[in-house]
Simulated scan of single mutants.
Amino acid sequence: MNPTLPSLSVIVPVYKAEKYLPRCIDSLLAQTFKDFELLLIDDGSPDRSGNICDAYARKDPRVRVFHQPNRGVSSSRNLGIEQARAEWVTFVDSDDWVEADFLAQFRLEEAEPDTFILQGFTHNYEQHPEKDFRFGDYKGCVFPLSSGEDVARYDLLQNGYPFAKLYHKEKLQRHAIRFNTAISIHEDHAFVWDYLCQVTRIRLVESVSYHYEKKVGESLSNKTYPPSVWLAASDSLLDGLSILASRCHLTDSHYLKEVYTAYGLEQIMQALYHMDASNYRDVIASAQKRTPLFDQYFLPRTPRQKLVLYLLKQRWGSQPLWLFIHLSHKLFSR
């Protein structure tokens, strides 16, 4: 460790965040743990976010600002990783905020490269505080990644948020672990899983000092993506999950089904829902290749899913399949 460098790099991707950015930065600069640098990555923000970043850099030497043309949050986080000077890295989103003990809770003096350290967080609803809840309200423990019972007990594989976690910079570099800029959904989950594949132990921290802000109208279900985006996300998630299922020695079949359904197979379902006359052949062919996984792991939760899965298994041509799946969409969207 170089004593002239900070021990922790905090990376904050910034885009159109002028309303929340000062709260985020102020909360980080007020940390009881002081030995960190704050990297603000301005992703071509069209508002005043870039100016706000520069103003904080002029006031506090711990703040470093990088401006780039708009390339997306994954590119911003990757730039932060490349520019980080510390041994350890963590991420904070620009519209979130943290309590004063957030960084101290990682206990860097005890951190080891092969141990992945995770905190829980508080899920805040911007205009409905009565809905606030704690995610991953851990009691504090350490266990090997190979302990499938603990992985399932703490629902580790469904915690794919990149924030409130501590990453070893050298491990990120050695294994070329980066956010996949080729996909625009679930890329954060894939990143966390890639990192999980390179550690041997998990330490869960009894802290919910990170505050994740849920904005009004902010929901993946409110966005529309073409089938290619859903399929690319599915491929990335399923590749990582096949490795983790083995490394974690998961024997809880129901837990495996829950994870496979939510992160890999549901994305294929979404691709089927959104296909059209220009792409249905490729989408159906991709989905049919995954039929064994659907048979083994998929948990259909709606009549629509059951019908689409039934249709997918029929030995019809791709055009009749598309037409019937399209009709099912019309039927269940009424």
Score class of each variant (00 low, 15 high):
residue 11 I to L: 08
residue 72 G to T: 03
residue 129 P to A: 09
residue 123 H to Q: 12
residue 16 K to I: 01
residue 57 A to P: 03
residue 205 V to L: 07
residue 299 L to Q: 15
residue 167 Y to G: 05
residue 258 E to L: 15
residue 47 D to S: 08
residue 115 T to K: 01
residue 313 K to F: 06
residue 213 E to P: 00
residue 96 D to T: 01
residue 260 Y to G: 00
residue 212 Y to F: 11
residue 231 L to V: 05
residue 153 R to G: 09
residue 162 P to C: 04
residue 60 D to R: 05
residue 111 A to E: 09
residue 84 A to L: 06
residue 61 P to N: 04
residue 8 L to Q: 11
residue 327 L to W: 15
residue 84 A to E: 05
residue 148 G to K: 10
residue 118 L to K: 11
residue 140 G to I: 03
residue 130 E to T: 08
residue 290 R to P: 00
residue 210 Y to M: 00
residue 166 L to G: 01
residue 261 T to G: 02
residue 322 W to F: 14
residue 319 Q to M: 12
residue 29 L to A: 02
residue 131 K to Q: 12
residue 175 H to S: 11
residue 104 A to N: 06
residue 58 R to D: 13
residue 232 A to Y: 02
residue 74 S to W: 05
residue 29 L to M: 03
residue 302 T to P: 08
residue 328 S to P: 15
residue 311 L to I: 15
residue 103 L to I: 06
residue 41 I to G: 04
residue 83 Q to Y: 09
residue 112 E to W: 04
residue 215 K to N: 11
residue 114 D to T: 09
residue 269 M to P: 11
residue 105 Q to T: 11
residue 135 F to L: 11
residue 130 E to A: 13
residue 264 G to I: 10
residue 148 G to Y: 10
residue 48 R to H: 11
residue 293 L to D: 11
residue 10 V to K: 01
residue 62 R to K: 13
residue 303 P to Q: 15
residue 46 P to C: 13
residue 211 H to R: 15
residue 119 Q to I: 00
residue 112 E to H: 10
residue 45 S to N: 04
residue 50 G to F: 02
residue 245 A to W: 11
residue 178 R to S: 02
residue 240 G to F: 05
residue 296 Q to G: 14
residue 332 F to G: 15
residue 205 V to Q: 03
residue 275 M to H: 08
residue 59 K to H: 10
residue 96 D to A: 02
residue 179 F to E: 06
residue 313 K to L: 08
residue 300 P to G: 09
residue 280 Y to C: 08
residue 214 K to D: 07
residue 166 L to T: 00
residue 307 L to G: 09
residue 168 H to V: 06
residue 184 S to Y: 13
residue 258 E to W: 05
residue 35 D to F: 07
residue 124 N to P: 00
residue 325 I to L: 13
